[in-house]
């Protein structure tokens, strides 16, 4: 009980709760699109490449959120362009993004004094360090994501289901794919505050993948993935508080174990 009281009275716990709530909505909406479009790996590449942005931001002494934002959007645009050219093997290009981004991040962080604790916090997240300013920028990003998905919902689904047919109907498939990746990169910016770069893909895809096991419609998937995301975040906060463990990792272990056990149960 003490923990639940503190959630509303202690400011860093309250901020953590609000950040978790926003992350859950993002997980629900964007995660469902990522899962049905089967682009977890693309999302992983975007997420990991932003370490480069964070490293540069530290080096230049500007807000790491700006660094994340710029790198995430930049990666999304480049990946989309490369996909449209289709000359190279997409997997290889994505792996390169994944690695180069992280390497740039490490290089710049090593050139900045006192980088160690920050690096850990960005790799594994620290939801307890979310500030009120962070919350406002997260809210703005969430707003942009929701509005865009609502406006383009049918077109997104058509593009995801059957790209070739959508193209014949003059739907701007390339534009939509780029837009989807940009929305993913915005989601990554939000989710990194909660669970960190390494775990962001898990939080984006696991609740949606669990939700897919029990929902036949995309709307249902989005709703239940959001609810599941919130449950995992709250449970994770509580357990990590009780046991004095890193919150992001606890959240992911909970979500991951739930997914694997349910998927196994369902396949029997």
């Amino acid at each position: 009980m003490e923990f639940f009281n503190s959630l509303f009275t202690v400011s860093f716990l309250r901020n953590a709760l609000l950040a978790g709530l926003m992350a859950s909505i993002v997980c629900g909406v964007m995660g469902s699109l990522v899962v049905v479009k089967r682009i977890s790996f693309v999302s992983g590449a975007i997420a990991h490449s932003v370490l480069g942005g964070i490293g540069i931001a530290y080096f230049l002494n500007i807000s790491p959120t700006i660094g994340t934002f710029v790198f995430a959007v930049f990666a999304a645009l480049l990946i989309s362009i490369i996909k449209q050219k289709k000359k190279e093997n997409e997997d290889t290009v994505l792996s390169a993004f994944w690695a180069i981004g992280m390497a740039i991040g490490i290089i710049f962080m090593s050139m900045t004094p006192g980088y160690n604790s920050n690096l850990m916090s960005y790799l594994f997240g620290n939801i307890l360090l979310v500030t009120t300013t962070d919350l406002w920028s997260l809210l703005a990003l969430l707003f942009v994501i929701i509005i865009t998905v609502v406006v383009f919902y049918r077109q997104f689904i058509a593009m995801i289901f059957d790209e070739e047919f959508a193209r014949l109907k003059k739907i701007k498939v390339n534009f939509l794919y780029t837009l989807l990746l940009i929305l993913i990169s915005l989601s990554v910016v939000i989710l990194i505050r909660v669970v960190g770069i390494i775990l962001v893909i898990a939080l984006l895809t696991l609740p949606a993948a669990i939700s897919r096991l029990f929902n036949r419609s995309i709307g249902g998937m989005m709703l239940w993935a959001s609810i599941l995301g919130l449950i995992f975040t709250l449970l994770g906060l509580w357990l990590s508080y009780l046991l004095n463990l890193p919150t992001g990792s606890v959240i992911i272990v909970l979500a991951g174990l739930t997914y694997i056990s349910l998927a196994l149960m369902k396949s029997h």
Partner: peptide
Amino acid sequence: PLRLIDMVLQSKLRNNSFFV
């Protein structure tokens, strides 16, 4: 995860089909 009728109606989408 798509209903039959919604899949069929996708044919009515155009590049200016916003909202639902």
